[in-house]
């Protein structure tokens, strides 16, 4: 059970949060311009990395804010949390 440092509320128990899948996949601005393959790439294809992964999390039973997390899935170490809209760290 993680302790997650919500960027708005501070450290809280994992029970209060919901995971929201891979981060930094932007919804296409003009979906109608996309081919079936391009749309399918956005719609279905997600990474499942053993190692450092960028994820979306929601403080569902708290402030209800979405934010990003960098987590090492091999040992569950949370390396960083940052707000939605902020640029992901390069490394």
């Amino acid at each position: 059970m993680f302790i997650i440092n919500c960027p708005y509320c501070g450290e809280r128990d994992q029970q209060e949060f919901k995971a929201g899948g891979e981060a930094h996949i932007e919804r296409p601005k003009q979906p109608t311009e996309l081919s079936d393959d391009e749309w399918a790439e956005y719609l279905f294809m997600r990474k499942n990395i053993k190692g450092v992964q960028f994820e979306r999390w929601n403080h569902a039973h708290g402030c209800r804010k979405w934010f990003n997390m960098v987590r090492d899935t091999s040992n569950d170490e949370i390396k960083l949390v940052y707000k939605m809209g902020e640029k992901p760290p390069l490394e």
Binding site: R27, R56, N58, A60, K65, W66, M84
Partner: peptide, 13 residues
């Protein structure tokens, strides 16, 4: 509600 919040906060801020 959660889905609408998601779109509001992340896609259409």
């Amino acid at each position: 509600l959660a889905k609408l919040e998601d779109y509001l906060q992340t896609e259409w801020p």
